[in-house]
Design a protein around this nucleic acid. Structure first.
Lengths: 173, 173
DNA sequence: AGGGCTTGGTTCAAGTTTGAAACAAACTTA
DNA sequence: TAAGTTTGTTTCAAACTTGAACCAAGCCCT
């Protein structure tokens, strides 16, 4: 089977998507680095903890919610712990495990910086969207995320020939 | 003025967006690392060059198209040059400048790996969207990207109080 | 109890990214 | 034309990320 290149509409959508997501992440990272002294991911980790019962979560669970690898989380939590925003505790029921707990100081940082973060997300994203578009956004990405998580990654819908060759018409960025 | 927190719809959309974009970027990065030995960004750089006249571009221009900083581009091109996929040339008209040129080998790598990349993007994104959603995607992100680039970043639409305080209702990840 | 296999997490080394500082050529203007 | 400014790019050091390798502690089975 010969590659199905992206249609012109798809190409436009893809380019817009790539550009916007890069720019948006960069802008948010800069804002949080400025105001909270940490990148977006680290902020998200604190946010995740703050919403969990007891403000604590097992590492693996936290990694899953954050959509990152355990390795990455280990380093992130190490940094946050050094800053006193998170504390690591051993898990009583499973001696292998460890749980990350948000400290009062971590909670305070979150409370202090959340408004600025929300304002940024609003200014850069939601204030530019109609309610209809917000719905679309959710629908689209909920589906995409499901496809990337749930489904057994061995055989996604249809088929995914991970490598193939033929003359490229456009490498699609 | 007290912070306008995200509405429940916006929160759902935001979470879905964050999850999907992370997972998607990771999946694409892994696929390209596997099949092309480089992360998505580097592939995009080659792709950008391949579509430019003469397959060469000034560094700054390339950085702008790729939506990355000049610094980041410098390192990326250095690596690609080390691999023989790109060549740096001095700019004749402006001795400060330098241009990155795609080598034949770089072009070959692109041709060899583009199909697999497109298949991935299709499988993970476009094959899950209706034509209508592809349109929506383009509309939404074209607008967002414009807001993040064009407009003088000093005073975006409405107002962007970059830092503010009050009790957070939800830190919005 | 004594292998094995799995699971939860960390560590290692190499690679990538960051923002600020440094450079150097080009432009401006007195 | 010398001084000062802007523009194009690289360099630096520190931070972050990656995937594979590793180490335990739990599990399963006999």
């Amino acid at each position: 089977m010969t590659t199905r290149w992206l249609t012109p509409e798809e190409q436009r959508a893809w380019r817009a998507y790539i550009a916007a997501t890069h720019l948006l992440e960069d802008a948010i990272d800069r804002q949080l680095q400025q105001d909270a002294g940490m990148p977006h991911l680290y902020y998200s980790i604190l946010a995740n903890l703050s919403e969990s019962p007891e403000r604590r979560l097992r590492m693996t669970e936290l990694a899953e919610r954050s959509k990152i690898t355990r390795s990455r989380l280990t380093y992130a939590v190490a940094r946050l712990e050094k800053d006193g925003l998170v504390r690591r505790e051993g898990c009583p029921s499973d001696k292998r495990g460890s749980v990350a707990a948000l400290t009062d100081e971590g909670m305070a940082v979150l409370e202090r910086t959340a408004p600025g973060h929300v304002d940024t997300v609003r200014a850069l994203l939601f204030d530019r969207l109609t309610p209809r578009q917000v719905e679309q956004l959710e629908e689209i990405f909920t589906g995409v995320a499901q496809g990337l998580q749930g489904e057994d990654p061995g055989e996604p819908p249809g088929d995914v020939p991970w490598l193939r060759r033929s003359a490229p018409s456009s490498p699609c960025s």
